[in-house]
Design a protein around this nucleic acid. Structure first.
Lengths: 154, 154
DNA sequence: TGCCAATAGATGTTTCTACATTAAATGTAT
DNA sequence: ATACATTTAATGTAGAAACATCTATTGGCA
């Protein structure tokens, strides 16, 4: 369905306004789908994001602040997210020797196992994107990067 | 900055995964910018969304359920959002005569005045999108619409 | 008409987010 | 070496979101 139909708005101030609304709308839609898939595994998209970052470390510990750097939502409270993962035995926390302020986090076997269960779900809804071509996907990505370019301007 | 740098991830499973992450990341960035602009006017992006819908009615009342239909985030609790607007005298609520379950909502002069103050901010950050062409903006919008197409599949 | 499902919106509750503050450890400049 | 700013993570708190439930009203139909 077109964004016009979805939010029942016929006219937009500009193609840029339309794009901004469409970006927000499409992302909400995407997050909602994701939330739905994850619900039965009792994990939130944010927690999943952290888990995937941990897996990406391939066994190496990573500091809480470095997790934050890699997150999609950098304003989220990583410390408490890690708490949640600990409570479910999906991650381990050990104090960092080289810097005793820092805390090292590692994914557990249980965490890896959960990701393995979730992977097909994720791939499924990523594959839905096949409705557009790989080139188009790359192109949108590049344009999105461009939109964020003048971040520190004005 | 490229999404690779922003989330410190060099490789993606596919251009589709990269796009999915970029969509979420870019929208978070956008919402954060918006939140920042609105903060000094003590209004949230959601409340702003409702206010704009009310203004779009050009003086005609609109039911709470119809507001929800037009919102970007349809899962939000419109009833309480309207409460917030009432508390700030930005909207009025009257019971609907034809259906006593329903509630009619109208924007106040104060609400219109606030929107008028906010408009330039919004236009400013929409105009940043000028970094891409109008055609490109339209094209991304169209592709986003396409991505949401198979909503009810699988 | 009377019954029951459906709808509209309000409200209760738990969890999460945003933001500020705190506490400990480290870096740095004198 | 000491003082002070900075960094790192945890925590406190107010407000918001997510989700279920409740109440009132309406619509449909036997």
């Amino acid at each position: 369905m077109s964004i016009e139909t979805d939010i029942k708005q016929k006219k937009f101030r500009s193609p840029f306004q339309k794009l901004a609304l469409n970006l927000v709308y499409t992302t909400k839609w995407l997050e909602y789908k994701q939330l739905e898939s994850f619900k039965e595994y009792d994990i939130t998209p944010q927690q999943y994001n952290v888990l995937r970052i941990l897996r990406g470390q391939q066994g190496n510990p990573i500091k809480v602040s470095d997790i934050t750097e890699r997150m999609l939502d950098k304003s989220s409270n990583t410390s408490r997210l890690v708490d949640k993962l600990l409570a479910k035995n999906l991650a381990k926390r050990t104090s960092c020797e080289s810097d005793r302020r820092a805390v090292d986090v590692v994914i557990t076997e249980e965490g890896l196992a959960l990701l393995k269960v979730l992977d097909p779900f994720i791939e499924d809804w990523e594959n839905r994107f096949n409705i557009i071509s790989e080139e188009e996907a790359e192109q949108i990505s590049a344009l999105l990067d461009k939109l964020r370019e003048n971040e520190n301007q004005a």
